[in-house]
Each structure stands twice: as C-alpha cells, then as structure tokens.
Amino acid sequence: MSLIDVKNLKVEFETADGIVSAVNNVNFSMDEGKILAIVGESGSGKSQTVFGMTGLLDHNGSATGSVKFEGKEILNLSNQKLNQIRAEKIAMIFQDPMTSLNPYVRVSEQMTEVLIHHQGVSKSDALKQSISMLDAVRIPDASNRIRMYPHEFSGGMRQRVMIAMSLLCHPKLLIADEPTTALDVTVQAQIMKLLADLQKDFGMSIILITHDLGVVAGSSDDMLVMYGGEIMEIGKTENIYASPTHPYTQGLMSAVPRLDDSEERLVTIPGNPPNMMKAPEGCPFAPRCNYSIDKCNSESPILVKASNDDHFRACHVSKEKIL
C-alpha cells in the first residue's frame, strides 16, 4: 500500500479579481521510505499542492479531490483531526527557518512544547528527548545550546533546529518546502546530507519541494515536474534526467548551466510563466512550447505512460518527436 495517494487534487483561491486555480488535477502516489521531489518554477503550484494536501491553505483557498494517507482520506478533515495527523504523522519544514521559529521563546521551550502537547510526556523527559534530537541533527553542545534563542543560531543551524523539531514525534512523512533555498551552497550540502541520513535512520519518507535541479538529482528517488499548476512529467529521477520526455522538462534541464560542463550558450525557454488568473484552456506550457500543435491550445493533456517503470508524461506530441 502506498503511503500517500493523491487523486484529482485541485486547489483554488478566491481573490478580489476572481478565482485563481493554483493546482489542477494532480495525481500521484508515493511509497514508504522514498524521497519524492516536486520541481517547478515559482508559481507552478508546487507548494500549494502540499498545502492543499495537508489543510494549510490560506483562508481564501479550497482544495477538492482525494488525498489518502495510509489508506485514510485526510483531505478537508476538521482542523482538530488534521492537527493530530500533522503533528504525529506528517511534519513540515519551510524555506526560512527564522519565520517558523518564535524569536521571543527559547529553543528548549519551543521544542518541548511539541512533545508535551502531543504526546503528554513530562517536562524533563521532553527536554531529554529534545536534546537528543538536537544531537541527531548534529548541533554541537546541544544541552547548552538548547537554552538559546533562535537569533543566536546561524541560518544553517536554525534549519537544523527546525528539522529536529519536526522529527520529535517521529513522523512517517516529512515535507520539506525549499529547505535549502535561503542557505549557502556549502551549508546546503550539509543539510541535504543530514536529511538523507535522517531519512535512513528514522525510516521516513520525504517530499522535497525545490526549484534546484541539482538538489533533486542528488537526493530524490522519484520526481514530479510541475508547470502552471499541472503535472508535466513524473517518474524515477534517474529516468527523467536520462531521457526527459516532456518539452518543459527538457527546456528546464538545458536552461541550467552545469559546473562540470562548458556549453557555449544556454538554451532558453522563451516567454514568461503563465498568469494563473486566466488559466489557459489547454496545456499551460503551450504558449512557450516549440512543439505545440493546435490541440495543445484547446485540450489539456492527461498523464500517459512514457515508458515502463512508472514514467508518465502529459503531452499531446508523441515522445519520439521530442527526443
């Protein structure tokens, strides 16, 4: 049984200017113990997909469809029930750790609160567990540093504190929303290594949201490429990098300069990302796509098998024409 199973997820926001559909017909499932990367540019709906799944949308947002976690429907459950799941089964970390930590409260208090509130452990036990968790994320001198305030930690250390806090209840699934975007490359390397180690130690699954194709290549088992709120391509990371079958994935891969390669000129994707206020009729990528045919502008493509091993693509143009 898969750990999480998302069917026809749609996320919409009601704004003063009309309805914005941020996520359209997203379908995927994920097995236990895997790392799934959701890749896309800003505004592609990658964050709103997981916010919709976990009931964290803004007050003007609504999600429809089905999200099954360990076989049970969790979409649009009451906040009380979701809080239980979000604390004990699904944890999240965000891009900017400073905005997720309370600057006025010592780290010790913020961490023990989680355990006291959700698991009813005693204060001293909670402190012990929190210190050992800080040890696990390799914060030196954890028993002293736990008494510090968030601003006394560096950016990388703060992200470690966030990771430690999210793991306190031993979640089955960790959702990491751009966890290293605000960090320097050297610190990014440390944090990604830490996440990979913790994933093995704790036997959890990770959904990694990122725009960095290098990070995806290094850390994920499977990946999902989003554009304009829809899934363009989904499959094993190795397969997608070896032979991207969607024009957008191809464009994205060739637009990034590689350190280990020297290309004369970067290949660009012409135009700009879509305006989600007026979602396009057909494929969201059609206006920027070199391969687009008439059908692309009128009919939204559905995900179809691109090859064996669970590789799917959403494109009207045949794979052979693109490769």
């Binding site: 490359v185 050297t186 390397a189 290594k193 290098g214």
Partner: peptide
C-alpha cells in the same frame, strides 16, 4: 565550494565525493 555545488545529473551527483 566546488564539491558542494549540486550537478543536475543523478549519476554524477549521487556518486560524487562531497567535501563538507
């Protein structure tokens, strides 16, 4: 610094020697 830069290629990235 160079070893920390992620390379967008799973075969390279997953097997490289990282200097942390």
């Amino acid at each position: 610094l160079i070893s920390a830069v992620p390379i967008p290629d799973p075969n390279v990235e997953k097997n490289k020697d990282l200097i942390l």
